[in-house]
Amino acid sequence: MSTAAADPGLWLPRPYRVSRCKRELSDTFTLELLPADGEAMPAFRPGQFNMLYAFGLGEVPISISGDPDAIGPLVHTIRAVGPVTEAMRALQPADEIGVRGPFGSHWPVADAEGMDLVIVAGGVGLAPLRPAIYHALRHRRRYGRVCVFYGARTPDDILFKTELKRWRGEFDMLVEVTVDRATRDWAGKVGVVTRLVEGGGYDPLHTVALMCGPEVMMRYTSRALEARGVARERMYLSLERNMKCAVGLCGHCQFGPHFVCKDGPVFRLDAIESLLAVDEL
């Protein structure tokens, strides 16, 4: 029996040192990390994720939210929702966490060249899309129109607010933000993100759409895009499932025949749309 394929480091996180923690929202923060051993970091592609390990507490899948082409720290944007992510919120510079990855499929930024790029995000779903946005900005001329449609619960939940403004101002980019519930000082749009998609601003026949957010939001968004004429084969979405290994052998992330950890998290819509329609799959 050959053991040639066995990977001794399969489960082994590598310690990374926090170089910066930035509070984004009341419950969301961004960590910048550098390998504790000072060695090089692996490259990643937009949409990929890492397994982040909080000492003794647990390991959770978190997408990379930084710039794939930049030389600099590894960047993750995290919403504190439970024990592991709460512990990560309490991290200070020079603290360490474990990192395993990167894992998974990626946004098709290369295939989308020459096309309009429509990026639709809900809530913290903007974080996994930010590397794709950075990529598009860095190579702005390779794309047609670039639209970012973003939906947040309230104006206080708008992630990367200053960046959204900058993207809108400095680059030739359509950036639209909507909230579910407005507060008094909000002069922007109110309503679901699908409305923004319905508003157009892109050429449906030459558009690649990338979506990340709650599954219902992505379902409605894909319908709105399709109604405008965007083909299913040019829509991509990122899924979330429970993950315990990220390498296809703990069984937790199964979605029909797919392991979301390695076949996803980014899927082309037509590959999974019949499964998306099934409850409790």
């Binding site: 507490l57 390991e59 315990k244 703990c250 069984g251 937790h252």
Partner: peptide, 25 residues
């Protein structure tokens, strides 16, 4: 083959281990 992966810490927080055990869908 489904397995749960559990991280555990000693009471004083100085040591930790990761244990895999059988799980079920």
């Amino acid at each position: 083959f489904c397995a749960e992966v559990e991280d555990r810490m000693s009471l004083d927080g100085s040591e930790a281990e990761r244990v895999r055990h059988w799980d079920s869908c």
